[in-house]
Amino acid sequence: MTDLIRLTDVEKSYTRGKEKIKIFDKLSMRIEQGDFVAMMGPSGSGKTTLLNLLGGTDKADKGTIEFDGKRIDNLSEGKLTAWRSTNVGFIFQFYNLMPILTAAQNVELPLLLTKLAPAKRRANVATALKIVGLEDRSKHRPREMSGGQQQRVAIARAIVSDPKLLLCDEPTGDLDRTTADEILSTLQVLNRDLGKTIIMVTHDAEAAKFAKRTLHLDKGHFNEQELAA
């Protein structure tokens, strides 16, 4: 399998007041195309920071980040935004749907960044909603749906522009066990049948079992054995 993501000697720190907090010091890792990785670790270990770096929503201080063989760490803000819109789908813990939009309108949002004609956009939205099993809920607004259904809409929004990478930040953190398992099964389907590479941050060991492998992050470092596996 080829690498979809390659991080080499990445350094990242934040300044809080007068204090400089180092998050990553020469972090290196690879994620293959088609992988489904669960990322676990205590709060403050750098999980969300890593998702931001991988998704191009934050920049590393040093080191290189490659996606599909091309460096993204040196892209301008504008180019990184454009890259993100075509290559990465995001799934959030609290779904982050726009409350005044219907399910279909929410799913259509990423397509507004493309040159697709409205008819083609509607067709793609219908397909995405069908994949997550919500084709009959397209005209419902978020408040008219359960948490699980809202997260499915969010998944449809993440995949509608057919990105290679899905980044999930605690996608089941706000759901009960049964609903969480349904969502995780859907992610498995996306990984297995559609070949999506998925990186999922979670605190839930049960959720991590749905992934192909689990990486533990602690104080900015991965467990070396897991990384090498």
């Binding site: 929503t57 935004t81 993100r84 995001f90 959030f92 982050n96 949002l109």
Partner: peptide
């Protein structure tokens, strides 16, 4: 703020 951040993450300029 959360809506704007979400849109920006999705790729809105």
């Amino acid at each position: 703020a959360a809506e704007i951040a979400t849109l920006r993450i999705i790729g809105f300029s």
